[in-house]
Amino acid sequence: MSEHASSLVQQPITDVLDATTVQRIADDVWTALVGDGEVLVPLPVPAPEQTVSAWVQITGPWCGAVVVTCDQPTGVALTECLLRARPPAVIEPEDVDDALGELANVLGGNVKSLLPEPSSLGLPQTGPTPPASRPEDLCRVDAQWRGQSLTITVQGATGAPHAERNEVPQ
């Protein structure tokens, strides 16, 4: 499958992945990483105005990114949970970048394992939410954690070869 895929125009992510699968991966990540009994509830709440994002890029037959987005206080609360056993006295912005980045990394690695091989994972990045490309190359989970909005997207890269070349599902 991978040999074919790499020579073809990029298939949209929704051909290999659906929101339920992403949610299931996130459930495991939350239980193990955020804390036992911590859950991401798949019920959307209104998105906050100011958000932070962390993501990892996936390069291979499919190119894109796995992005985690929430507001700053939620990012701090997540960081506190991740560092539960050894929290520093003050959570610095770098700690939040690092923790959200690691969440994106672990989600990304698990997403990558569902994609055609060979795919590789980039190092985590953080910043303003990166733009997605075409809407059909997007898998999105709008959820809440402790009542606050948290979104996970698996989104095709804007520069990916599909954008202008082909809209036909493979």
Binding site: G37, V39, L40, V41, P42, R146
Partner: peptide, 11 residues
């Protein structure tokens, strides 16, 4: 305080 856990597991 574990309401969210009940919610998530039973939904």
């Amino acid at each position: 305080g574990k309401e969210y856990l009940v919610e998530a597991r039973l939904l």
